[in-house]
C-alpha cells in the first residue's frame, strides 16, 4: 500500500518536474543541512539542560522560551525541504534502509518529547531552578540526545543506500 502511494507520487507531474529541475535537489539538501544545524543544535542544548550537562544555571522555562521559537523556525524549513526531497524522488527513498530507520528514529524523538511535555514538564515550576533536574527529566534528555545523534547519522547514511544489512537487501524492495 505504501509502495502504491510512493509510485503514485513518483509519476505526478509536479514530482517529476522537481526531480528533473537542474538545481532543485542542490538547494533543498543544502537548506536541509543548514536548518538541521539550527534544529539539532538548539534541541541539543535543551536536552543537555535537562540531562544536567550544560546551562545548569539557566531556569528550564527560560531555555525553552528563549530558544524554542528559533528551533520551530528551523523545524519548518527542515521539514519542508525534507518533504520536498522525498516528494521529488519517492522511489529513490522507498527502498532505502537508512531513510526508514531515520523516520523510525524521528518517531521516537517525537514520542519522547511529547511524553516529556505532557507529563514531567507539568511540574517544571518545582524544579526548573535546580541545576540537576529530576531523574525522569534527565532521562528524557539523554534519550533525546542519543536518538538525535541517530537521526543525524542515519540522515548522512541515506547517501549510502548500498551499505545496509543483508536481510534488508533480501526484502527486495528496490
Amino acid at each position: 500500500m505504501l509502495r502504491a502511494l510512493f509510485e503514485w507520487v513518483d509519476v505526478m507531474p509536479s514530482s517529476i518536474s522537481l526531480r528533473e529541475s537542474l538545481n532543485g535537489y542542490v538547494y533543498l539538501l543544502t537548506a536541509h543541512v543548514v536548518s538541521m544545524g539550527l534544529v539539532a543544535g538548539i534541541i541539543g542544548y535543551w536536552d543537555m539542560r535537562l540531562a544536567g550537562m550544560a546551562l545548569k544555571w539557566v531556569p528550564v522555562s527560560k531555555v525553552k522560551s528563549g530558544l524554542f521559537p528559533w528551533m520551530y523556525a528551523g523545524v519548518a524549513v527542515n521539514a519542508f525541504t525534507g518533504f520536498l526531497m522525498l516528494y521529488s524522488q519517492p522511489m529513490r527513498y522507498y527502498p532505502n534502509f537508512w531513510f526508514w530507520l531515520k523516520m523510525g528514529l524521528l518517531v521516537v524523538v517525537a514520542a519522547n518529547a511529547a511524553y516529556f511535555h505532557l507529563s514531567i514538564e507539568k511540574t517544571v515550576d518545582e524544579w526548573e531552578h535546580d541545576p540537576v533536574a529530576p531523574f525522569k527529566a534527565r532521562l528524557a534528555g539523554y534519550v533525546s540526545l542519543v536518538f538525535w545523534v541517530g537521526v543525524i547519522t542515519t540522515g548522512r547514511m541515506t547517501a549510502y543506500s548500498g551499505l545496509v544489512p543483508q536481510w534488508w537487501i533480501d526484502l527486495g524492495l528496490g
Partner: peptide, 13 residues
C-alpha cells in the same frame, strides 16, 4: 555532521 550540530548550537547560544 553530529559535530556540526553541536558547533552550530553553541554558536547560536
Amino acid at each position: 555532521l553530529v559535530s556540526v550540530a553541536v558547533f552550530v548550537g553553541a554558536l547560536l547560544l
